[in-house]
Design a protein around this nucleic acid. Structure first.
Lengths: 251, 251
DNA sequence: GGGCCTAGCTTGTTTGAACAAGTTCGCCTA
DNA sequence: TAGGCGAACTTGTTCAAACAAGCTAGGCCC
């Protein structure tokens, strides 16, 4: 069994998504839930805190909690891994490595991956397709210490995240993402079957292990209209930040 | 004074941002912090939970907490309000209403704002500039009940969010955001001074009051390169979600 | 020297209790 | 009837204690 509060959160989440509570309706009070689940108030609070973080419920001191929506945010794994996300939504996903080679890290890459300039890194160019249509172009730089594991993957590996976990036990735990829009370059256009200059949604990200060690730096470009990022937030919890452009050269 | 845990979180945050702890370094243990701040372990845990949600520190059961970075996520207000965000980063921001008129809500708008089709709504077209350069085009639909307050604002109102708070005490508490890339239409191109078809970063959002009542539905388009969205997340906390495109017609 | 194992440290989970602070709603008064 | 008041309810904050579970480092054995 998982933690108690996680179980309670799960039951409440299902009840909300099932429609037991309408959007805008009130949730039972903490005291009531504590009795129903035979848990202390603290544990119940932890459970509803999970739902609040997912954006499902909101709360104000003094008033009952309110149901804000029915769609749950997906897990970190689903956010990080294109394959896991696509699969969880029932889409058929494929991938293909077009290029892969080791190089010495330049200053930018070294900084981002917490390496010394000149240390070995592995650059990979990958196309991902949804239902056979190419929708995503990934230009990834892996830190040298993980390169062997990445190179040993098949070129059409579906989920790199999962493969790395299974082969070397690597876990991605933290990520920082920068999202903006860019025009498709010549190569982008050719590989994604769009016209040059057409809009792409760009997501640049650094991912690190649970110990805080950077593993990869990636520039992912989505064909416009194929994928949308969705964010739920509240006065309490909010992870999204705007930044003025041109802070960093684009790789 | 604010809550105890908030104060502790603040001190720790400052220490991290000041560089007392290097990125990758360990934070003192909960027990140690409890002694130092003369608080119970529970309160200390609440404080570090705040930092974890901000993406500043990470934690693993059994091991000391690790400093992950030095940049803090901004507040919800800064995320929601373009003006407040820009001001907090030291930019000069201006705004101008180009069009404003009441209409009956169509089915889409009514659904998103939890109204009945035919109820009155207020549509506003606004341009926002950074340092005099137009960077953002806002097409906003306000629910009828807030329309009078919006109409009474000056056309060059800098911060609508703040103005509405001051005039009628309206507070924005929750938001749902959809982010993708689109090509600039004829009107977009003219008003943002870009070529037609050039890439724009689009953010569609619904914002609601603390009671869960939708206030506005907006389609914001940023000129490419002017603004970047940044997200920090971890296995525990993650608010960002991908969605397959074409789920909803674009306004 | 190399590998295993355990003791102690550190974070995760849960309970129970108490008070603070904000909301709601009915009642009472002017 | 309109407004104000207050009691009951509900969430927010804090404390203290105990056990579970994962991690680390040092010592021990081969």
């Amino acid at each position: 069994m998982t933690a108690r509060y996680a179980g309670i959160a799960g039951e409440l989440r299902e009840a909300i998504m099932r429609g037991d509570y309408d959007v805008g309706a009130q949730l039972p009070s903490e005291a009531e839930l504590a009795v129903r689940f035979a848990a202390s108030r603290g544990t119940v609070r932890q459970a509803v805190a999970v739902l609040a973080a997912e954006g499902l419920v909101g709360s104000r001191q003094g008033a009952r909690r309110i149901v804000l929506g029915r769609e749950r945010s997906q897990s970190f794994a689903e956010l990080h891994s294109f394959a896991q996300w696509a699969r969880s939504t029932g889409h058929r996903v494929t991938g293909l490595v077009l290029e892969q080679r080791r190089r010495a890290a330049d200053v930018t890459e070294a900084t981002r991956l917490a390496l010394q300039p000149g240390d070995a890194v592995l650059r990979v160019l990958r196309v991902r397709s949804l239902e056979g249509e190419p929708v995503l172009l990934e230009r990834t730089v892996y830190a040298g210490w993980i390169a062997p594991a990445v190179e040993s993957l098949p070129a059409d590996c579906e989920s790199v995240t999962q493969a790395l976990y299974e082969s070397v036990g690597l876990v991605f735990a933290y990520g920082e993402h920068l999202i903006d829009a860019v025009a498709a370059g010549t190569e982008d256009a050719r590989l994604l079957s769009v016209r040059r200059g057409s809009p792409l949604l760009r997501q640049r990200r650094v991912t690190t292990t649970p110990e805080g060690r950077p593993v990869e730096w990636s520039d992912d470009r989505y064909r416009a209209g194929s994928v949308t990022f969705s964010i739920r937030n509240s006065v309490d919890a909010n992870p999204l930040v705007r930044q003025v452009g041109d802070l960093r050269p684009s790789s």
